[in-house]
Design a protein around this nucleic acid. Sequence first.
DNA 1: TTGACACATGTAACCGGTTTCATCAACTTA
DNA 2: TAAGTTGATGAAACCGGTTACATGTGTCAA
Lengths: 353, 353
Amino acid sequence: MCQDFTGCPDRDGKKGKEEMSKTPPQKRANLRDVATAAGVSVATVSRVMNAPDTVAKKTRKRVEEAMNSLRWVPSAAARAINTGRTRFVGALVPTLDNAIFARFLSKLENQLNTHRLSLVVATTGGDPQVEAEKAKTLIDIGAEGLVVSGITHGQALYDLLDRSQRPAIATSYYDPGYVLPTIGYDNAAAAKLAQEHLTGLGHQHIAVVHGPRLNNDRTEARLSGLTGSNAALELFETEISLAGGCNAARAILQGTQRPTAILCLSDVLASGVLAELHRRDLAVPRDVSVMGIDDLPGSAHIYPELTTVHLPVARMGLAAADAIAEWVETQTVPEPTLLEPSLVLRKSTARPR
Amino acid sequence: MCQDFTGCPDRDGKKGKEEMSKTPPQKRANLRDVATAAGVSVATVSRVMNAPDTVAKKTRKRVEEAMNSLRWVPSAAARAINTGRTRFVGALVPTLDNAIFARFLSKLENQLNTHRLSLVVATTGGDPQVEAEKAKTLIDIGAEGLVVSGITHGQALYDLLDRSQRPAIATSYYDPGYVLPTIGYDNAAAAKLAQEHLTGLGHQHIAVVHGPRLNNDRTEARLSGLTGSNAALELFETEISLAGGCNAARAILQGTQRPTAILCLSDVLASGVLAELHRRDLAVPRDVSVMGIDDLPGSAHIYPELTTVHLPVARMGLAAADAIAEWVETQTVPEPTLLEPSLVLRKSTARPR
DNA sequence: TTGACACATGTAACCGGTTTCATCAACTTA
DNA sequence: TAAGTTGATGAAACCGGTTACATGTGTCAA
């Protein structure tokens, strides 16, 4: 328990845990202790923290010295109870294992910091019930607001938000009619963009590889964007991972007639498909075109460089951070924000032979 | 501001923001309001929350009804100030963009949940100064403990930990002599494992691709594990990403004599290297062997299946969660824990030709 | 000299819970 | 029936800060 950090980083022999003799077990100092030590009132100490320039320089110095010698650390809870601010918000994402969410969270966290807000992260595994439970926990520990993924949620979550009256925004999806403000892209449009690129190249038989539809509105929306084409679409559902992509590719190649293009609704799936195609000695895009959606940072560098649809998750992270921060701080409900996906032409697609 | 979640998920026309006429702006109910409404004392209401079975069933019901009709939501700060527990800890990682950290955090978060703890995540970009600042923020908002990566940190972080007396453990590294308890693997041993596999196959000229050494003890340790071999080692430093791997591969192929094996100190780097080799029409492992360290979930499925050293980050997540939870709850400083890396033989290495 | 005013500081209420201890009724048990 | 328990509840202190308001001092213009 007693840590001694002088002379880091090496520990000068493990110390017994029960010593600490000179200074009696002395519990943590509080504001009044500091005030007493500095010979001022608690108000003055508080001012030294929150409005330093309203305190005489000499007094301030004395207080600061007292703080240091008592090794005072302010209580977050005590501050929060008065200010009404805990200075953190929560984010609920299906998984961290898909780089797209990791990337989003990373930007979200950084931008939140500019608003002096921290980020509590919780993963749901895509299960609305788990999501609702974790959301409850986040509210319980004091999250000032929530950032959720998509627009498909359990009633329990809506009830929670309603009752707690906490700000919450939905991301990775755009739907101005949704109960919560959405900040995201039009998943259907993104898929359409991809499909049109393929049909534009002349592909008439396209395999579509997608993640689980259950409780996943992003997948569902992307699939819905695929209607209204005269190309034959064959759907392959799989787990969203490299392994999932491999499996899908195997299933595709097992079919009677090989499609001329494979449209993957996530870049990871495309990576898996590419790997499996290599394994089967099929060349991309010569033998078959492969396309993704997401545009992960790595997608530009795999072989072959993946043609995909860029989803602006980094910008989404920034926008979501700004939106939730403003809502939390000024009670202003943000407007839904549409972020445009864009086609990124690289080397994994070509005309069918 | 007024949310109405009945009839989700569609919003019945955006409501004006300034209405809310019937019930006057009525600020949030607190414990006393509930107590008054239920005709009991605050103590009883508190008991209904924390020790339901010490309250008469009839009373409890009455209180619960009052809670509901007043839509009472307990204040996290008020609870925390009394219990001394905020029920969350913080984690500081260099980045989320490397899947290895995402995976670790994912497990960490889940396991923390079993201890009724949430996780605040902060990324440092590998900069000790940023790390110290973010750590300060985490302590400031009330993190009960910290989980950091590696053993290279700024003095400011040590000072903070010392002063705040918060539990903190270091991960991704094992060093029983370190000031903080470490939970991780022996990075040097992991690298040695990889190198010995390659030399065992007969490789005498090995290119080593690694991430930045600056402030990165994991990289440094892995490099240090590479001594004591009679094979010629050529070092290539690059950014840890697919793109970085590609760049390194390019640099390697530019050399006068091509190495027979490429040892990448991270799987992502290996993926990048593999992509670039494909691009240059070099076959792996026929023309050159490639090996990684990490064993990301995807590494088993790329082409060719990557031979690598498995780092037990999932187990590390569990162990770190249990350790910090116990420390926080029982003031027991955890013992340093060594997790063994293991060689995973797959298809990207072979004897040199 | 005096009254107005800015500035520095202190007093005490307050935030919204938890918890100790006292109280009192009902139930055993002899 | 008296004494001892047990169970349910309430009164009030307490946690550690913030802040409205009061107070006191020194400066400056009239």
